[in-house]
Write a protein that binds this DNA or RNA. Structure first.
Length: 283
DNA sequence: AAACCTGACAACCGCCTTACG
DNA sequence: TCGTAAGGCGGTTGTCAGGTT
């Protein structure tokens, strides 16, 4: 049915916000809140559409916004969460206090993605999906494709041991295809299994990597619910040995009727319940 | 010094989801 | 149950500052 853009109305201002507009918006929200964005600009006396006001508040004016450069930890967290969630920026932002989805999206496209792509271009082409950090380069390591990929598999399952390759699903976003090949995340000492990711993310035993074929199924995020149910069933096989928490068992077992369509939070919960909370930032 | 290029980020656009009558 | 309005989200674009030629 289509809908006219909300800012098409004649007389509404577009473009960068002025300090005066900011002040008006802040004052109004402090006084009256923002229960109705559509009506807010009119009530506040702003020549902006509600969407524009909402965006300005959410992304810039909120008092709890954290400004400034992203820390290494934050960048690492984004990379990790993106690996799990794909381009669900708002979900990622929800786990990075003070950061907005827009900001995270920007930093991904301008910094992190390029870092990963850069590494990809310099990466040897031979053992594409299974290459792993070279022991000799351990002191200044970057994460290879397999390592980055395995990070998810590992965080999902708790271990990479005894995972049948046919069941070894890994997941990426539609956008992640360009970076699943590798990441250029600085990863000191990973080859020894004791890098910065060791405690936080990777417990990968290097000896296991060669025996753990990495399969990146790019269709996961766009799968139908039926497909996802199927995926969930496969995951059930993978996870059943790993997830001890009884609360999770019903969702993994039996009928396979896991309602996991678009339910990344569920998987996050899995990680948390699997006693891997240290891998994620505080919520 | 000027022109051009690039990176960063704020803001917009349009689709999807949800709430409600 | 359906239609509509509003909110929310992700993709994309526009603009500007800093760097390079």
């Amino acid at each position: 049915m289509g809908r006219a853009p909300c800012c098409d109305k004649v007389g509404l201002k577009k473009g960068p916000w002025t300090p005066e507009e900011d002040q008006i918006l802040i004052s109004f929200i402090q006084k009256h809140g923002h229960s109705n964005w559509r009506a807010l600009p009119k009530q506040a006396g702003l020549l902006r559409c509600g969407k524009s006001c909402r965006l300005r508040w959410i992304n810039y004016l909120r008092p709890d916004i954290k400004r400034g450069n992203f820390t290494k930890e934050e960048e690492d967290t984004i990379i990790q969460l993106h690996e799990i969630m794909g381009n669900r920026w708002s979900a990622i932002a929800a786990r990075l206090p003070g950061r907005t989805d827009n900001e995270i999206k920007n930093v991904w496209h301008t910094h992190l993605k390029k870092r990963l792509e850069k590494y990809q271009t310099t990466k040897p082409q031979g053992k594409k999906a299974r290459s792993r950090p070279n022991q000799a380069n351990a002191e200044n390591m970057t994460v290879s494709n397999s390592t980055a990929t395995n990070s998810f598999v590992e965080t999902s399952t708790g271990t990479v041991d005894n995972v049948p390759s046919s069941s070894a699903h890994s997941y990426s976003s539609n956008d992640f295809s360009s970076i699943t090949e590798i990441s250029s995340i600085e990863l000191p000492n990973i080859s020894s299994g004791h890098g910065i990711y060791d405690d936080q993310i990777f417990d990968i035993q290097q000896s296991n990597l060669d025996d753990f074929p990495v399969i990146f199924d790019e269709t996961f995020w766009s799968s139908s619910s039926q497909d996802l149910t199927s995926d969930a069933n496969d995951l059930n096989l993978v996870f059943s040995d790993m997830v001890d928490d009884e609360q999770l068992q019903p969702q993994f077992s039996g009928t396979g009727s896991c309602d996991c369509e678009d339910n990344v939070d569920f998987w996050l919960d899995v990680f948390v319940k699997a006693d891997r909370t240290s891998e994620l930032p505080e919520f």
